[in-house]
């Protein structure tokens, strides 16, 4: 569905995108993760036909962003990170204008607009002026606008940026709905946990290079292979600590005295972990729980980008 080949964008001596390659199947929700200035918005701008790449090309449904921008625009719905609205247009006029801009007939627009407003929960705002809507409502309206021509691909640059928690939840629900409708969605966000639960695939971009791509679990596996394990004890913290220090597969031991917990990095396999647990029981240590610490996307991102910086 989406094919990005050796996409490079340079601004003078600054390289915003460096030979980016990416391939996405239809119906996938792809989360683009990266620090500010990493190249997310540049990639999205190229895909939205707003920017020409210095070299390379990108294709959506086989249409090139360079050679067939007009045909490609029919396939995409784009929502930029920052956008404005027309001061003196009403909500339905706003959607009507964009519907007409995509060549949708007047009769069809009349049917479409109420449906879209219902999808983004703005039915009761249909005759309100756009500039009087709240930030969250404007974001939802912009999403409805991006959907007016029923695009196959949605490119959403920081759609939850600047929204309060309630508006963020509403936006997430709408995106889930769109996912169930089979849309291919490209979404960037600096609020990483949000992406983790919504996305099928995640790409981590740093300094214009795609440094990791896959589902959240596979990206986590790309980390050094160390697990962070937490054991909970009833007492004897020092004894347990001494026991753990003897194991060569264990490092970075942290004792959390007030919670009677010890956290450590473990390089061993699952079988090694079973052996460690058996050994602890045989040594009569008062361990009542052992669990692997969940790494969220933020940890993954920090670890990967740190690794990339060190290279």
């Amino acid at each position: 569905m989406i094919e990005i080949r050796d996409l490079t964008k340079r601004y003078g001596s600054f390289t915003a995108l460096d030979h980016l390659n990416l391939s996405l199947e239809e119906g996938v929700v792809f989360g683009f993760v990266g620090a500010n200035g990493a190249g997310k918005s540049t990639t999205f701008s190229i895909l939205a036909t707003l920017l020409s790449p210095t070299s390379g090309d990108a294709f959506i449904n086989g249409k090139s962003v360079i050679k067939e921008p007009k045909e490609l625009r029919k396939l995409i719905g784009y929502m930029p990170d920052f956008f404005g609205v027309y001061d003196q247009l009403k909500v339905d006029e706003y959607l009507d204008f964009y519907g007409a801009s995509y060549g949708i007939g007047a009769a069809e627009r009349k049917v479409l607009i109420p449906q879209l407003l219902e999808l983004v929960n703005l039915t009761n705002k249909r005759y309100d002026y756009v500039d009087l809507l709240s930030r969250g409502m404007k974001q939802r309206l912009c999403l409805a606008r991006a959907l007016i021509h029923d695009p196959k691909v949605l490119i959403l640059d920081e759609p939850a940026s600047g929204l309060d928690p309630r508006a963020r939840v509403e936006m997430r629900d709408i995106l889930r709905n769109l996912k169930s409708m089979g849309k291919t969605i490209l979404i960037s966000s600096h609020i990483l946990p949000e992406l983790a639960e919504m996305c099928d695939e995640i790409g981590v971009i740093d300094n214009g290079k795609l440094i990791a791509h896959g589902n959240v679990a596979s990206i986590q596996a790309q980390l050094q292979g160390e697990k962070r394990i937490v054991v909970k004890v009833t007492d004897c913290l020092n004894e347990v600590r001494a026991f753990l220090e003897e194991d060569p597969l264990i490092s970075s031991i942290d004792v959390i005295e007030n919670r009677l917990e010890i956290a450590f990095n473990y390089r061993g396999t699952d079988a090694d972990q079973v052996a460690l647990l058996k050994k602890a029981i045989l040594a009569n240590l008062p361990i009542y729980a052992l669990s692997e610490e969940e790494k969220d996307l933020e940890d993954v991102f920090m670890a990967i980008t740190k690794g990339a910086d060190n290279q």
Binding site: Y78, P80, F83, G84, Y86, Y98, S101, Y102, C142
Partner: peptide, 14 residues
């Protein structure tokens, strides 16, 4: 200036 141009340019209008 109003940040509406980019959206307009992604429509199919020439």
């Amino acid at each position: 200036e109003k940040q509406t141009l980019n959206i307009l340019l992604t429509t199919t209008q020439s």
